[in-house]
Amino acid sequence: MSGGRRLLRVTSLAAALGVWQLLTSLDVNLWLRFEQFPTVGEVAAAFADRVGTAPYRQDLGHSLRRIVVGFLLAAVAGVAVGTAVARSRWAADLLGPLVEVVRPVPAIALVPVAILLLPTNEQGIVFITFTAAFFPVVVSTRHAVRALTPVWEEAVLTMGGGRLRVLFSVVLPGALPGIFGGLSVGIGVSWICVISAEMISGEYGVGYRTWQDYTIVDYPGVFVGMATIGALGWLTSTAVELLGRRATSWLPRPAARGAAGAPRPAFRGAGRTRADTPAEPAATVRTAVPRKEPVP
């Protein structure tokens, strides 16, 4: 990235922080009320207080473990189910309707199901995270597998290759760009759901801590939580995107690159998710407030 573009990015972030500091330190009250809103300085101080402490590290570890386990399970199961549904009529008839019926249910609405089914809260949160990422991965895998050109499969068959050879030499590598599109969307949705699930039923975790801070009216603490969620989400999305780029490095690159978020056409979903992830958990926090009161 050129120096100019880096400067622009830093300036954009700094300007947003500057406006925030100005509005809150002057206690602006023009319909939007900033008197109670913590200043950038207060949030930064709270962040500095917490960042090295054992509880903070513990929360971070819990949230990361939940998302990594849930997401990895979803990636494996999603690719397997998506491929099966796309390749086998039998699997399409058996699993297709089930996937379509469960898919519209928001993962976070499955909290009661998780509480009924699973022995511990911890497993329930992983289950929610898994469900959140599973469906984007299934759907994108199914589309990517169906879109493969039949010529590749015919070529391998006429070299004497069998079903497994076609699966591992043609179907999975060929579908990989589409699969990574689904994984990028999936990791973003996973974060939204792991944080929400922690707020509802967690012990420890960034989402749980953020909600605790809200209930004891520690607003700078709430913002520390949001910043942490944003940073973690950005980190994991970037990891998925880098992995995807490495795995699909064979894709032809356009001679002149377009926008920074969209390095190549087949992988556009990734750029969008990365931009969205820091913003969306914050939105969930706001909308969750009025609904929260009856804690299970």
Binding site: V151, W152, V170, P173
Partner: peptide
Amino acid sequence: TADRALFFQHDALLPW
């Protein structure tokens, strides 16, 4: 089977 190879007009190579 591998006894009878098929050769296509284009895009038959595995691009990866």
